[in-house]
Design a protein around this nucleic acid. Structure first.
Lengths: 196, 196, 196, 196
DNA sequence: CATGAATGAGCCTTCATTCAT
DNA sequence: TATGAATGAAGGCTCATTCAT
């Protein structure tokens, strides 16, 4: 992976900020350019169109998130522990990159989403679902579809971040840690759960 | 609540369809008008501006969802049962009104959202959180913030609907019913859970 | 043929003038609008795009020229006389509508031309060639392809008008009338020509 | 006349091709550069501006055409024969260089044309008209203005080439040769014509 | 109330031209 | 000489909104 050109990165960051502040529609290319410190025309050296910029930005972010997933998943660590590490890893990433989260949410519910081919879109899901598939196979989780468990888990993380961002979540000492616990309690194989 | 004028409703439905098909940005007033079978100017007799139309539509939908909540909640029914009835009620509603769900998701992540005052926005949450507050108070659920439980539950429902809409969810006999079960298992008071 | 809306005609005339003055490329829609006395957006009520405007204008003009042809051709008049009447008729029309001529020349040598389907483009030629076909059939003209004779005749007329417009043609009493004479002398059946 | 630098010639040829394919407006400097195999900036070492490139290209072509004229005109050859040789010479040149013809036609009807001073523009005409002036003086042609005869003759040639390029001209054995004949029959002094 | 032609600000995009390397 | 990334003015087009009918 070669390093991304400075200007290109500046354009990405500028877009990310503006989309959060004003939404896709409220983010003209002229403003993206100004905040990135480049001329309007310059964007078109790096991206074919606004749509292309948005989609490439999506890939750029997706790769970051995949990197988080990979760094927290390890076959050598007990599954239970990985589960919580991934939860916290993604939680941290999204919390510290609120621009990313809002961009992602808007992207998914936008017409741009339909322009991303299936293979590219689910690169992230491949990793995520893989982790849950393993949990099911090894008997840690309820025997449902990995897609279902993965999707629900991700939704749980994102909702938590959004509550926090919106100021609705009081982060008392122990409150945050109970949220992945709810998820785990719901998903773990019940026989194990009640053996205690 | 007086009944909504026919044209107003037609405009609402037209907007809802178009926003799903083309997103906010791809939904010009002229198209809303055409599909609603009215002239462009007519919309401005019912709504002050496009923003006003969007926000009023948000309220219109929110009220439908609140109605679902109310119809499934009943103090006379065991809490556990209400929980699942609400889950299924909202699941059904969103499934059968996919326009609504996409509109909602887009609305929340749009600049329009910031124009809705806090009181109005949380009308729905008041009911939702109230239900979870009761569950905690009566000892059915883990003693967390009702906001957290309510938000997580709603995210769980919406994710399920979206999986289904995207065709990722195989609705085998028993698969669907396990999803609210995951939620319940995660949220219920653990002492109770393992007493069995 | 219903009368053309006032605004539409104003846009046509404005375009015609500007294209002569500044060429296709030097004629922005904003200027077309300003000179036509309408707003820029208004043009797009009447035409889908700049290309559409140009092409419709082409048809508009073509119909005027066809009308000239038709008004001068008459089976009841001796062929020789019709020939000269048509020559003068077109010459007059082009001379008095120099905007039209320059537009036409530019249109033919522009990429827009390829957007006009064959049938539409040759509506004018159908009439023109028809006249020469008759001349050949009746033995007035050399037995060549009517397409060739028609095309050469039209080029002759246009060249004459352009010389005049450029100021290169001194319109002495008898000079102009010798030009169609050259054409006629070249095209008429030789046996007849030298019988005299 | 020093020989033209290789790159300069490549730029000329590239421009010529592109103008035919896409018209003036559809021929950006960046594309000219790419097809010529040079960088965009390089063009500006050879030409001051796009306008300068176009105008210099016009002269470049004009000189080629003048060369054709000169090579076919010879005082030692009977006038009648020269007339046909020039006709065929130009016809051949334009037919084999269709890029040239389209460029020329577009140039004449473009705003660039007004930038060429009169003296330069009519360099070609000087030769052309000179030939017809001689024809008149020597009694071979009708006693009209040489400008008129020359212009009509040139238009006749160009029309023929364009018919051929468009595929409208069936080049049967004898058909082509009748076209300059038409021209000659029209222009030659009539007393001579009918003496036969 | 209803209409829809008209408006014009603002957006995405192109492209002739420059200049640091 | 040669390069090509960068510039930014200008153009085509959209669309929320108005208003005369």
């Amino acid at each position: 992976m070669e390093p991304i050109a400075d200007k290109k990165k500046a354009i990405f960051e500028s877009t990310l900020e503006l989309v959060r502040e004003k939404g896709f529609h409220g983010t003209p290319m002229s403003l993206v350019a100004k905040r990135a410190g480049v001329a309007a025309g310059t964007i078109y050296h790096y991206f074919e169109s606004k749509q292309d910029l948005i989609i490439e930005l999506f890939y750029y972010i997706r790769d970051q998130i995949i990197a988080v997933l990979k760094s927290e998943d390890a076959a050598s660590v007990p599954y239970h522990k990985c589960f919580f590490r991934i939860w916290y890893g993604l939680y941290e990433y999204y919390s510290q990159n609120p621009n990313v989260l809002m961009f992602f949410e808007q992207f998914v519910n936008s017409p741009y989403n339909t322009c991303v081919n299936e293979a590219n879109r689910s690169e992230f899901h491949k990793y995520l679902f893989g982790f849950f598939e393993r949990g099911i196979r090894e008997g840690h989780l309820k025997p449902l579809s990995p897609k279902i468990l993965g999707t629900l888990a991700h939704a749980n993380i994102i909702s938590t971040v959004k509550m926090y961002s919106a100021g609705h979540l009081v982060l008392e000492e122990g409150e945050l840690k109970q949220i992945p616990q709810i998820l785990w309690d719901g998903m773990r194989a019940q026989s194990v759960a009640c053996k205690v």
